[in-house]
Design a binder for these strands. Structure first.
Lengths: 340, 340
DNA sequence: CTTAGCACTCGATGAGCAAGAGTGCTAACA
DNA sequence: TGTTAGCACTCTTGCTCATCGAGTGCTAAG
């Protein structure tokens, strides 16, 4: 069931053309442009075969052929070449993070915007996975609430408001923070949770307080939808496939449900890169879209970033841009004043 | 140049109809539906006058009339009635903030989403203005960086990474935090900035450190684009005016430049409510859109929220929803475990 | 001042037609 | 046996043209 070399070349030519034009590709086009010396009739026969094999679709009887998701899959698996960036763009990418970034948030949204800008698709970022706890500190807010700030070894920090007993002074909180820090330091959340009992024994004083704190700690450490940043989506609307407003709406609203995106991206933060095509995403409103991701590391933690765009995507170009971004992000670590 | 009562009523009928149908309104429609006992010919004459006065536009010679922004302005100034919510929706609004919200972020995005959901336009929120500093705390991250967490009296907190001298122990940082807190407590940023010299004298030890910290503090306190949250924008695409994809793109990209929105909203956080129509916004891509805002207070700080939609907006309904939201937000304060 | 009546305008709709792109099939050819 | 020229056929696209109808402005009568 494998394709012979000629079929490959023809399929590639079709995909290349379709990616550029978004128009169904006819046999004559390939016969002329494709660098092949075959007549359109021969191409037609081959195309007919390719359709039967499920690599091409025909919108209607007298239109050209359109690649199916199966074709894209083959394309990225076997035919894809990563396009390296032209030098001026490459420089541009390096520039993005030149300005001071105090917060993880800043880095993420700058990167997501940049990805959108460079690719003309929608850029998406997920923050690096929180690593091991490095410090926990309680900062008083009101008489009965405090802010629990957690810093991890990859520089990610999170905070949440926790209730505290009324009679705790700031110094008390600081002491508790130190105990918490001592106990939690260097551990992942999975390691911390069973420690509850031990902790409770240590500080008989605030028995009631700690289960709640550990709960929060656990919640803070898991990747959540808040750590997903979507870049410019308006770029997407320029793509011809979204002249159909309903499709556009479907995709946009899919992009707005951040927890879906969080799942997708966080699942891919272990993969150096990934390409997921249309139906493979198994999400409503994204049957005709693809997700391309690369992982990156920031402060030692692994995150993922990518672009979402029509399946007819310039995969090579996009991968090139994403690779450049990865490198730029990784370099942030080496600089002082780095992203939180 | 004032309009007589009948012109008012006719104009109102036209706007009411147009808001519902998004179609140019003809004289016959008004004559029949408008509750008036005038013939279409009479209406026609009046409409002709209204057009001359700039309240109506005519897309083309043989179409009906469409309200101009001037008409909407008049409408909201003099003819608008706030629609109170049907009880079941009112209950729904109260439910939104029932779940525990640890972070300001959570509250904002839940609210923005809810506004979008209820109105079918795009909801926007800006965080309450930071008030007076209540506590400043430095949490060590690495040997040379710390997280500066600032808590204000209205519960807003912000953080940013600051460089610190290499030889500071956590306890040192805690002491410095206490000094900073003592000095800054109860003051606004405008009051803190001139204090630099005083502070430097107090702690001769870390002269070089403090200007940088105060800088950060100042930056933290100003409202920034990060505090703007936009709810679901895909709802907007359902509006018939955005069948024109270019318009949709224009508006969406306007919604993506958050600092513009930040300016708009923060300028309106002092007003109980505001309605700004198309050209009055003076922004590209929003000539045909309106912004309706109400202020709210959370933790004692004033913020603003609103919706952005086509000028042909159900102003009364939107105001009703926003009022309900304001009330729901204000009530969060009274509960424990409140928004950050 | 109101309104009935009427001529006029102009967009929307749909039919009809020609052009063009593309296909599949067949038959000839190497 | 694979390739290709040729051709009939299909279907979309764009165009024109006529028609329809909503809506207007004007005029003259009530």
């Amino acid at each position: 069931m494998d394709l012979d070399d000629r079929k490959f070349r023809i399929l590639q030519a079709i995909i290349d053309d379709y990616i550029l034009t978004a128009m169904p590709v006819g046999s004559r086009t390939i016969s002329k442009k494709g660098g092949m010396t075959l007549s359109s009739a021969t191409i037609r026969n081959e195309m007919s075969d390719l359709e039967e094999l499920g690599y091409l679709d025909q919108p209607h009887a007298s239109a050209g052929r359109v690649p199916s998701w199966k074709a894209y899959r083959l394309y990225v698996d076997r035919l894809l070449r990563v396009a390296s960036l032209p030098p001026e763009e490459s420089v541009h990418v390096k520039e993005i993070f030149k300005t001071r970034m105090d917060q993880m948030e800043d880095v993420l949204s700058a990167a997501a915007r940049a990805i959108s800008e460079l690719t003309d698709y929608a850029g998406v970022m997920i923050a690096p996975k929180a690593g091991r706890v490095q410090r926990v500190q309680l900062v008083p807010i009101t008489a009965t609430t405090a802010l629990m700030v957690t810093v991890t070894d990859n520089g990610v920090h999170k905070d949440s408001v926790v209730p505290i007993p009324r009679d705790l002074s700031p110094d008390h909180l600081y002491m508790i923070s130190n105990v918490l820090t001592e106990r939690a330091q260097g551990r992942t959340i999975a390691e911390i949770l069973p420690m509850t009992d031990e902790l409770l024994q240590d500080i008989g004083l605030h028995r009631s307080l700690f289960p709640s704190l550990l709960d929060r700690l656990a919640r803070q450490m898991e990747p959540d939808s808040a750590t997903v940043v979507v870049g410019s989506t308006s770029k997407l609307l320029a793509q011809p496939e979204f002249n159909d407003i309903d499709r556009a709406r479907g995709l946009l609203s899919a992009l707005e449900t951040k927890d879906q995106l969080a799942r997708l991206l966080s699942a891919r933060s272990q993969l150096e890169f990934s390409i997921t095509i249309g139906p493979e995403l198994m999400l409503d409103g994204m049957q005709n879209s693809s997700l391309v991701t690369v992982s990156y590391s920031l402060g030692g933690g692994a995150g993922a970033m990518g672009v979402i765009g029509p399946s007819r995507m310039q995969y090579g170009r996009v991968l090139g841009i994403l690779s450049a971004m990865r490198q730029a992000l990784n370099e942030i670590d080496e600089k002082p004043g780095k992203g939180s």
